[in-house]
């Protein structure tokens, strides 16, 4: 009986701990390059993200090959020439959400937050700090962010022949809906 009580307690505590985690496998990331000669857009709807509400820790894992372009040849060159996705299949972010003290996840409000951590793209890791929002809606966490990435920071080189086709910084839009992790 005593063992059972402890076991039950343990299960409840673990369940409680897990309830703090939110996760998705089909988040959305779009990037947009606005160069004088060409606008290039790509979308990825298979973004993996997880957030630990208790500690504020946040993780993203983005499969590079899952980015879809309007032109198939662009997608091929993106993978083959620029991102080298055979060698570097994922981009990741690993960090924490700050400003959580004033955030309200009891009501349906949009909480501005700051994301601090390490972004790894094309095998290069950089410390970043960007703004975003988090919102609790119908038991799900909606996270949004928009920021710029400089290609040079991640050793992605644009050859002289296409400098007018590809911008040296691209706008990244993140929109994820995280669901409570159940195990």
């Amino acid at each position: 009986m005593k063992h059972l009580t402890i076991a039950l307690l343990l299960v409840m505590v673990m369940a409680g701990a897990n309830a703090q985690k939110y996760i998705t496998k089909n988040g959305y990331i779009r990037f947009f390059s606005d160069a004088p000669l060409e606008k290039i857009e790509a979308q990825n709807r298979q973004v993996n993200a997880a957030w630990d509400m208790e500690s504020g820790q946040l993780a993203f894992k983005v499969l590079i090959k899952a980015f879809q372009f309007e032109k198939a040849l662009m997608q091929e060159h993106f993978n083959e020439n620029y991102m080298e996705s055979g060698k570097y299949p994922d981009a990741t972010f690993s960090g924490t959400v700050t400003d959580l003290n004033e955030a309200d996840f009891q009501k349906d409000v949009i909480n501005p937050v700051t994301l601090i951590g390490k972004m790894t793209i094309h095998g290069v890791t950089k410390d970043i700090e960007e703004k975003g929002t988090l919102q609790m809606k119908e038991g799900k966490i909606i996270g949004k962010a928009k920021f710029f990435i400089k290609l040079k920071d991640y050793n992605i080189n644009i050859p002289q022949a296409v400098v007018k086709n590809i911008s040296d910084r691209v706008e990244v839009t993140v929109d994820v809906t995280l669901e409570k992790l159940v195990k």
Binding site: L10, K25, D52, S55, Q57, A59, K61, L63
Partner: peptide, 20 residues
């Protein structure tokens, strides 16, 4: 009680690692 301690960042990332 014993297990409530926050898991590390690696665990959070490993949650994302089990793609089919």
């Amino acid at each position: 009680m014993i297990v409530t301690g926050g898991r590390s960042q690696d665990d959070l990332m490993s949650l994302l690692g089990d793609d089919q």
